[in-house]
Design a protein around this nucleic acid. Structure first.
Lengths: 251, 251
DNA sequence: TGGTTAATGTGGTTTTATGTAGATATACAA
DNA sequence: TTGTATATCTACATAAAACCACATTAACCA
């Protein structure tokens, strides 16, 4: 599939738009195939369909980040869909940096009138200019590997807000002490957004259970919900229950 | 449909209004088709119908909306390539919001070790995590139509920097008073980045020549270089020469 | 090897853009 | 004012494109 996507994008890049029939002829495939490819590009927000053809959106000329980030991992996609299901149209939320949260952002493209605060470039890119959303991006130097901003400015920026949900990813979940991250600044960030949200939602696939990481984010009691893909082992289940964290399993 | 819409807007942009019959002849379709297209444009509040024709609302004042449709992409691409050619590997620069600057960003993906400051999501998107670049994105609420951040925070953010080049787009170039924008906050931004850069480079295609817009950015002398696709008319040429602005034509 | 899955092709149906023709409305001049 | 030319509106016709369900092929994996 992504071979076709590449080819279609190349053709579109030549002049910004192209007709379906022409592309089909150029690439030696059926118009139907082109349509399907265009459909995924449209779903990613990279192109706009018109009758008879498609044109690149004036921004997002190259799908560098979004594409690199959201390789199709079915598990994370399911978690993302489920987490997005918890968010109502018109709601407000914070989304932090992370591969799982990128899937949440992708799933949230179905929603409308969201108020989104984020320090993640891919998240902003997925939701800005989409369905009447308002997107607030925290600035700063962008980390090259994930497009996240973590400076003091960014921290101060997010503290201005008060939102319904904070959706965050973690590096590990431990039965003793709760949720962990690798990076101190990420942890600071997570704390800030938990403090600014009514409900803190952790998204984590089952591989995170029992995994240790150096920085503890906060007391388990600071979190409200965990969205994951498989029931956690008993000891972690106990910890979650004791902290009053409800678990939502991805369908 | 939207293909037709673009063509009609293109014709209307030439002089601000046109007759239905003329447009039908020009585009090789029935007058009825033009009427239907005009109807949707009217419904979007972009044009006003008059008996026998239609005229663009706010022509010259608000090209931003029409600009989304009238994408002169090959031209902008050439300008972008040329502007990028002025930047050395390892250099530092500011890039503001705009369709032309997005093409500059695109062309700059060939370079490496750049230090890029921007308030534009698409620009950050194009250059972050690429060839060892460092990207600093100014935060704030992202405008839905172009992904730009223009708040006070963003303004303060960019003032921290000192870079080699500032690459900016404009809404119009006038022989009397120089360079214009339609938005006050954009103009403030442009002034800030001009003050923070050694060299101010304007990228503008030839359609901007003689076009008026409400906000003057700065004295012509504040700019150093103009990258465009066709030689400017004599009066503008004189203005540029007098202000010491060198003109670079895109190949 | 067989079985599962992803990508593409095929045929038939639905939708869209445009054209055509006739009825109605509008501008303008005598 | 009335008459006439032209523009607009409405309804219907048609060809092309989009959509959908199913068949086929290719690739991959146990």
């Amino acid at each position: 599939m992504s071979q076709r996507v590449r080819e279609v994008l190349d053709v579109l890049n030549e002049s910004g738009s192209a007709r379906i029939q022409d592309m089909a002829a150029r690439l030696g495939v059926t118009a139907e195939t082109i349509r399907r490819t265009i459909a995924v590009l449209e779903h990613q927000g990279l192109v706009t369909k018109v009758h008879g053809g498609a044109s690149l959106k004036n921004w997002g000329l190259e799908p560098s980040f979004a594409q690199r980030f959201v390789q199709n991992q079915p598990t994370k996609r399911r978690i993302g869909d489920t987490a997005a299901g918890l968010i109502a149209d018109g709601s407000s939320l914070f989304l932090d940096v992370g591969s799982t949260t990128a899937y949440v952002a992708q799933a949230l493209r179905q929603k409308h009138d969201l108020l989104v605060v984020t320090n993640s470039l891919p998240v902003a890119q997925a939701l800005a200019g989409q369905n009447n959303n308002r997107v607030f991006m925290a600035g700063g130097e962008l980390r090259s590997h994930d497009g996240g901003a973590f400076g003091a400015d960014a921290l101060a920026f997010v503290r201005q807000f008060r939102v319904r949900h904070a959706i965050l990813s973690v590096a590990g979940v431990d039965a003793q002490s709760g949720f962990f991250l690798q990076d101190l600044r990420e942890a600071e960030f997570s704390r800030a957004i938990i403090a600014c949200a009514d409900e803190a939602i952790v998204v984590a696939d089952a591989s995170k259970f029992g995994r240790v990481a150096p920085i503890r984010i906060a007391e388990p009691g600071a979190f409200h919900r965990l969205v994951t893909d498989a029931p956690p082992p008993p000891d972690i289940s106990d910890m979650l229950a004791e902290a009053g964290i409800s678990v939502t399993l991805a369908g």
